[in-house]
């Protein structure tokens, strides 16, 4: 286990370095640059050159690269080009918000999808085809709806028509109740997709276990159906479910970008879209590296958990 973890950690470091390098050089292939993107209609010629110099874009590219690496290692992310604000400061505000949304989504997803998936599996096992098909089919349908579409429908329904949740407003962790109320809609939109995925996976996993011998044994011993279902079947189906929770982080991060944009949540996704719009290299490269690091680390821990849960797994 220890050697495995160490190996995996080393791999993590190599991957991260690769990510950093790839991102840095790719962003510099952009036609035009931050200065001309910023200038828009108003600047040309000399004025533009001056702006470029001010932004440090005229240094040789490898100097910029080395400086960037040094700064990353010392956690000095520098300042954004267009606003001159500390990127570290921006990140420290945005990360908790995005993280809170991600965690809330996962919690909500687990609470709803696991019983739903187990129910579907049970129904399928008992031969109630129609009900099972409705749940599975519904889950698949929802899974495939583009999130920007769901977001707007939810806004119109829950916010405008029913008046349950706000569409905009301050997002601050200082007041947890207000914060939850504010992020409720985005979390709901994100969860819908996640729930669909997770419910289907739970169903498959539980269904497989239900036909195993020991379940039959448990039944024959006269235990209640519920107990059989949740104590035995679900427990044994936990392994694939845990893995999927970890792995679905990727699609969750995808989702936050769009949802944050629509609901104007000042998280990492909003920062990223801002950065791309203003071609702020400094900001975009830091953010992408951050996303990647986040994602890779979650995968790393998922692997460890998986390994722990199931020592048979060979990597």
């Amino acid at each position: 286990m220890f050697t495995y973890s160490l190996n995996r950690l080393l791999q993590l470091v190599v991957t991260t370095l690769g990510v950093v390098t790839l991102v840095f050089f790719t962003l510099r292939l952009i036609p035009g640059d931050a200065a001309s993107a910023m200038a828009g209609d108003t600047l040309s010629g000399e004025a533009l050159d001056r702006l470029r110099e001010q932004m440090g874009l005229n240094k040789p590219i490898w100097v910029q690269y080395i400086e960037y690496l040094q700064n990353l290692i010392t956690l000095n992310f520098g300042e954004t080009i267009t606003t001159g604000l500390s990127i570290g400061g921006l990140l420290s505000k945005a990360i908790p918000i995005t993280l809170a949304i991600a965690v809330a989504t996962i919690v909500l997803t687990i609470i709803i999808s696991i019983p739903l998936g187990t129910l579907a599996a049970y129904l399928a096992h008992k031969g109630h085809k129609t009900l099972d098909n409705i749940i599975t089919g519904g889950a698949m349908l929802v899974d495939l709806m583009p999130s920007f579409w769901t977001a707007l429908v939810f806004l119109l329904l829950f916010s405008l028509t029913l008046g349950l949740f706000p569409a905009s407003g301050t997002v601050s962790l200082d007041d947890p109740a207000a914060f939850l109320h504010r992020i409720a809609l985005p979390v709901l939109v994100l969860s819908v997709t996640q729930i669909a995925t997770m419910a289907r996976i739970t169903r498959t996993a539980v269904l497989e276990i239900l036909s195993e011998d020991y379940i039959r044994t448990a039944r024959s011993m006269g235990w209640s159906e519920l107990r059989v279902l949740f104590r035995h079947a679900l427990k044994n189906a936990a392994l694939p479910i845990v893995t999927v929770v970890g792995l679905s982080f990727g699609s969750l991060l995808n989702g936050t970008i769009i949802v944050e944009f629509i609901f104007t949540i000042p998280g990492l996704g909003s920062l990223l879209v801002n950065g791309i719009n203003s071609r702020d290299y400094q900001l975009v490269q830091t953010l992408i590296v951050f996303y990647a690091l986040f994602f890779v680390s979650v995968n790393f821990f998922t692997d460890l958990v998986y390994k722990r849960l199931d020592p048979r797994v060979q990597f």
Partner: peptide, 11 residues
Amino acid sequence: AFPSLLLAIGL
């Protein structure tokens, strides 16, 4: 290491 939409957006 990149979530797929992020990679597409970046590219």
